[in-house]
Design a protein around this nucleic acid. Structure first.
Lengths: 156, 156
DNA sequence: GCACAACTGTTGTGCTTACAACTATATTTC
DNA sequence: GAAATATAGTTGTAAGCACAACAGTTGTGC
């Protein structure tokens, strides 16, 4: 850090494009989901993670990690989803400290209803504008950067 | 949306890598800036925008747009930065409705002190892990997606 | 030149999130 | 097997943000 090379025009542009693209992309996807199905992108992610888990159930900590949210954040997020009937809490049979978040029938229906909207949004805003080569390059770059980030900070 | 093609493994992987990479990258950069210089990435962005403006000053609405934050959000963000002495507010001479956010000497020093940390973080976590070809591809893809997003929603 | 619309920045309010503290339970250590 | 330690989930609290409403100012149409 004592000797820091400045960002050139290309590098600065890439960084700013990342920031701006993120801002717009996630705002757009969230808005489309909220408008069409009255759920947030964050809630949608919870539904997806649960639907992919055996029995549609996950421990709170496990779900928090997969949904990229803090445990306390997940507690609050789930509160709303329980009230909406999308999920329910169950005592964990093998660990009495634990709580299972469980997808309800209504939650599964909500996911199946919302998924096409979400997928269409990801396609329209992210995948479709890119050529196959660009898309492959993007995926490769994202995975490379992510791998390095996870390697540098394995703790979380 | 009536006929929605599902995401294949590659597409799903790219989407999830984007989400995960974002989460980690911005958290990391924010944390490094907070630890080393006691400012947030959001505050840093305000300093950068002001430093690039003539006279180190911008109208609130203009600054909000550049910093990708709502006008009310910027009002609150600036409150803290004024209290920290990084910026000050001045009446706009040409429009009595307006307020100028102005970079102070202390703010410019803070920016110059923090910039190496930020640049080093962007390099280490985003740019360095990529080959020149990957980096060029990433930049191209990001700009393409961003351009489409802005085209679809020119209002903002 | 006056009524009306548009714009500027701030404020009230509510939502979402994270951190730290807390209770309850599980695991480890000796 | 008892004490110390670790873990699970929730809660208090605070920070950050957006939307809507507001007062003050500017622009427009006639």
């Amino acid at each position: 850090m004592t000797e820091s090379r400045w960002l050139n025009r290309e590098e600065m542009g890439t960084w700013r494009a990342l920031v701006a693209m993120n801002n717009r992309l996630f705002a757009r996807l969230d808005e489309e989901l909220a408008r069409a199905h009255s759920i947030s992108l964050a809630e949608y992610e919870v539904l997806v993670q649960l639907s992919e888990a055996p029995g549609g159930a996950l421990r709170m900590s496990d779900l928090a990690e997969r949904a990229l949210v803090s445990r306390s954040g997940l507690t609050r997020r789930l509160d709303g989803m329980v009230e909406a009937g999308l999920v329910c809490r169950q005592a964990c049979p093998s660990d009495r400290r634990g709580t299972l978040a469980v997808l309800t029938e209504r939650g599964r229906e909500a996911l199946e209803a919302a998924a096409p909207t979400h997928v269409a949004g990801v396609r329209r805003h992210l995948l479709d504008p890119l050529s196959p080569a660009q898309l492959e390059g993007l995926g490769e770059a994202l995975r490379t950067v992510l791998a390095r980030l996870e390697q540098d900070d394995p703790g979380k």
